Amino acid sequence: MLGSFIAALVTALSLLVVDLIIPGVRIDTFVAALIAAVAIGVVNGLIRPVLQILSLPLTLITFGLFSIVVNGLCFWLASLFVPGFSVSGPLAFLLGPIVLSFASTFLNRYLGERRPGLMGTETSELQDGV
Protein backbone atom coordinates (compact mmCIF):
# COMPACT_ATOMS: atom_id res chain seq x y z
CA MET A 1 0.00 0.00 0.00
CA LEU A 2 2.75 2.42 0.97
CA GLY A 3 4.72 1.40 -2.10
CA SER A 4 1.78 2.24 -4.38
CA PHE A 5 1.34 5.61 -2.72
CA ILE A 6 5.04 6.42 -3.10
CA ALA A 7 4.95 5.31 -6.75
CA ALA A 8 2.00 7.68 -7.32
CA LEU A 9 3.89 10.51 -5.60
CA VAL A 10 6.98 9.91 -7.75
CA THR A 11 4.85 9.85 -10.89
CA ALA A 12 3.08 13.05 -9.81
CA LEU A 13 6.42 14.80 -9.26
CA SER A 14 7.59 13.48 -12.63
CA LEU A 15 4.46 14.90 -14.25
CA LEU A 16 5.28 18.30 -12.79
CA VAL A 17 8.73 18.01 -14.39
CA VAL A 18 7.07 17.15 -17.71
CA ASP A 19 4.86 20.22 -17.28
CA LEU A 20 7.97 22.39 -16.94
CA ILE A 21 9.88 20.88 -19.87
CA ILE A 22 7.33 19.99 -22.56
CA PRO A 23 5.15 22.70 -24.10
CA GLY A 24 1.62 21.44 -24.52
CA VAL A 25 1.48 19.52 -21.24
CA ARG A 26 -0.35 21.50 -18.58
CA ILE A 27 -0.94 20.51 -14.97
CA ASP A 28 -2.75 23.03 -12.80
CA THR A 29 -2.08 21.77 -9.27
CA PHE A 30 -0.20 19.07 -7.40
CA VAL A 31 -3.53 17.39 -6.63
CA ALA A 32 -4.26 17.25 -10.37
CA ALA A 33 -0.79 15.74 -10.87
CA LEU A 34 -1.50 13.11 -8.22
CA ILE A 35 -4.86 12.22 -9.78
CA ALA A 36 -3.21 12.17 -13.21
CA ALA A 37 -0.55 9.78 -11.88
CA VAL A 38 -3.26 7.38 -10.75
CA ALA A 39 -5.11 7.78 -14.06
CA ILE A 40 -1.92 7.04 -16.02
CA GLY A 41 -1.40 3.94 -13.89
CA VAL A 42 -4.94 2.73 -14.55
CA VAL A 43 -4.74 3.43 -18.30
CA ASN A 44 -1.35 1.74 -18.53
CA GLY A 45 -2.65 -1.26 -16.60
CA LEU A 46 -5.97 -1.75 -18.37
CA ILE A 47 -5.95 -0.14 -21.82
CA ARG A 48 -2.31 -0.20 -22.86
CA PRO A 49 -2.00 -4.01 -23.08
CA VAL A 50 -5.02 -4.13 -25.42
CA LEU A 51 -3.57 -1.35 -27.58
CA GLN A 52 -0.22 -3.12 -27.71
CA ILE A 53 -1.79 -6.34 -28.93
CA LEU A 54 -3.93 -4.54 -31.52
CA SER A 55 -0.97 -2.53 -32.79
CA LEU A 56 1.50 -5.43 -32.83
CA PRO A 57 1.68 -5.63 -36.65
CA LEU A 58 2.47 -1.90 -36.91
CA THR A 59 4.97 -2.16 -34.08
CA LEU A 60 6.76 -5.01 -35.86
CA ILE A 61 6.79 -3.20 -39.20
CA THR A 62 8.24 -0.04 -37.62
CA PHE A 63 10.78 -2.03 -35.55
CA GLY A 64 9.14 -0.97 -32.29
CA LEU A 65 8.82 2.74 -32.99
CA PHE A 66 5.02 2.57 -33.05
CA SER A 67 5.14 1.78 -29.33
CA ILE A 68 5.99 5.47 -28.82
CA VAL A 69 2.65 6.32 -30.41
CA VAL A 70 0.88 3.82 -28.14
CA ASN A 71 2.55 5.42 -25.09
CA GLY A 72 1.52 8.87 -26.30
CA LEU A 73 -2.04 7.70 -26.84
CA CYS A 74 -2.23 6.33 -23.30
CA PHE A 75 -0.74 9.57 -21.92
CA TRP A 76 -3.30 11.63 -23.83
CA LEU A 77 -6.14 9.27 -22.88
CA ALA A 78 -5.34 9.69 -19.18
CA SER A 79 -5.51 13.46 -19.63
CA LEU A 80 -9.11 13.15 -20.82
CA PHE A 81 -10.20 11.80 -17.43
CA VAL A 82 -8.42 14.33 -15.20
CA PRO A 83 -9.49 17.95 -14.90
CA GLY A 84 -6.45 20.17 -14.60
CA PHE A 85 -4.27 17.92 -16.77
CA SER A 86 -4.14 18.45 -20.51
CA VAL A 87 -2.00 17.23 -23.37
CA SER A 88 -2.18 19.21 -26.60
CA GLY A 89 -0.07 19.02 -29.71
CA PRO A 90 2.09 16.34 -31.28
CA LEU A 91 5.20 17.34 -29.33
CA ALA A 92 3.43 16.80 -26.01
CA PHE A 93 1.81 13.62 -27.32
CA LEU A 94 5.14 12.04 -28.31
CA LEU A 95 7.71 13.56 -25.93
CA GLY A 96 5.57 13.77 -22.78
CA PRO A 97 5.68 10.04 -21.97
CA ILE A 98 9.40 9.87 -22.79
CA VAL A 99 10.28 12.70 -20.41
CA LEU A 100 7.90 11.22 -17.82
CA SER A 101 9.75 7.92 -18.02
CA PHE A 102 13.17 9.54 -17.61
CA ALA A 103 12.02 11.73 -14.71
CA SER A 104 10.34 8.80 -12.93
CA THR A 105 13.41 6.62 -13.35
CA PHE A 106 15.66 9.36 -12.01
CA LEU A 107 13.43 10.05 -8.99
CA ASN A 108 12.99 6.34 -8.21
CA ARG A 109 16.76 5.78 -8.29
CA TYR A 110 17.41 8.93 -6.28
CA LEU A 111 14.91 7.99 -3.59
CA GLY A 112 16.11 4.39 -3.63
CA GLU A 113 19.69 5.50 -2.94
CA ARG A 114 18.78 8.10 -0.32
CA ARG A 115 16.16 6.05 1.52
CA PRO A 116 16.64 2.33 0.76
CA GLY A 117 13.72 1.25 2.96
CA LEU A 118 11.38 3.80 1.40
CA MET A 119 11.32 2.31 -2.09
CA GLY A 120 11.19 -1.34 -1.02
CA THR A 121 14.86 -1.96 -1.77
CA GLU A 122 15.88 -3.04 1.69
CA THR A 123 17.76 -6.30 1.98
CA SER A 124 17.61 -8.71 4.83
CA GLU A 125 20.54 -10.53 6.37
CA LEU A 126 19.20 -13.81 4.97
CA GLN A 127 19.26 -12.49 1.42
CA ASP A 128 22.86 -11.36 1.81
CA GLY A 129 23.90 -14.80 2.96
CA VAL A 130 25.04 -13.64 6.40
Rank of each mutant, 00 (worst) to 15 (best):
M1A: 15
L2P: 13
V17H: 08
L20K: 13
I21F: 15
G24E: 15
G24Y: 10
V25L: 08
R26C: 02
R26S: 11
I27D: 10
I27M: 03
I27V: 14
T29G: 12
F30I: 07
L34H: 07
L34F: 15
I35Y: 15
A36G: 02
A36Y: 09
A37Y: 12
A39M: 13
I47S: 09
R48F: 02
P49V: 10
V50S: 09
Q52M: 06
I53S: 09
L54V: 04
S55Y: 03
L58K: 11
L60Y: 14
L60H: 07
T62L: 07
G64H: 06
G64Q: 06
L65C: 11
S67K: 09
S67G: 10
I68D: 00
V70M: 02
N71S: 02
L73I: 05
F75L: 06
W76Y: 07
W76Q: 01
W76T: 00
A78Y: 02
L80K: 06
V82A: 00
P83I: 02
G84S: 08
V87Q: 05
S88M: 07
G89P: 11
P90A: 08
A92E: 15
L94H: 08
G96W: 04
I98F: 11
I98W: 07
S101K: 01
S101Y: 13
A103I: 07
S104I: 04
S104Q: 14
L107I: 12
N108L: 15
R109D: 07
Y110E: 00
Y110C: 02
G112M: 03
R115H: 09
R115V: 08
G117K: 10
M119G: 11
G120D: 10
L126K: 05
D128Q: 14
G129E: 02
V130M: 15
